[in-house]
Design a protein around this nucleic acid. Structure first.
Lengths: 104, 104
DNA sequence: TTTTCAGATAAGTCAGTACTTATATATAAG
DNA sequence: CTTATATATAAGTACTGACTTATCTGAAAA
């Protein structure tokens, strides 16, 4: 189940913090590492997890690996919430369209 | 961190399925149990977890316990997504207002 | 080519968690 | 009062997952 994987990926505070930092701008692994109190392998493992569920994308350049958020990655999460639109008015409908148009 | 707790709560497929069933209508524990292939204690434990993070609420009536979704419970999740509105236009702003007005 | 640097992978450890069965609590029914 | 039913809690187990150190791959620098 896609939702499970995405919820799981974002349930870890470190991993979510990585996602949040990447949301601001593309960064290399060592740049990212600077902000956290965990080892470099831990960062790589978190990035692999985020990449595995489509939340981030990788761009390789020489010996550097640059990671960035893949905006489409959040779509299943938004859609899941959307399924519970019965709890609030239909405003959220707009989200879907917005996300679709964002497909670049 | 509130977000972590909510993401964690919804990351478990059984627990999320319970939430989804309760989203349709209020149900007692034994009614819920009928739909799942886990023991009654497991259901109670999941409900306690969902209740602990404010995703569901309990109403006690005699020897029965009726659970329902607390719509406000999803607010932190929506707000978190909202923080990444930089990735898509400002439509999501509306959500906050909607959720606020939903405070019953 | 040898060394250094960026990053990924391997393997092991430890804590957390989803489950189980057994038991407790409390209300309702006989 | 005794028994049955609804739910919660206790305690134990097995698995998962986030971390570590050590090692591997590959590109740049010396």
């Amino acid at each position: 189940m896609v939702e499970t994987e995405i919820f799981r990926a974002l349930a870890d505070p470190t991993r979510r913090a990585i996602f949040e930092r990447l949301a601001r701008r593309e960064m290399s692994v060592s740049e990212l590492k600077a902000g956290f109190d965990v080892s470099q392998p831990a960062i790589s493992q978190h990035l692999a997890a985020l990449r595995g569920v489509g939340l981030v994308a990788e761009r390789r350049e020489g010996k550097f690996a640059y990671y960035r958020v893949d905006p489409k990655g959040l779509t299943p999460l938004v859609n899941w919430i959307d399924r519970y639109r019965t709890f609030w008015p239909a405003r959220i409908e707009k989200l879907k369209d917005v996300l679709k148009g964002m497909d670049k």
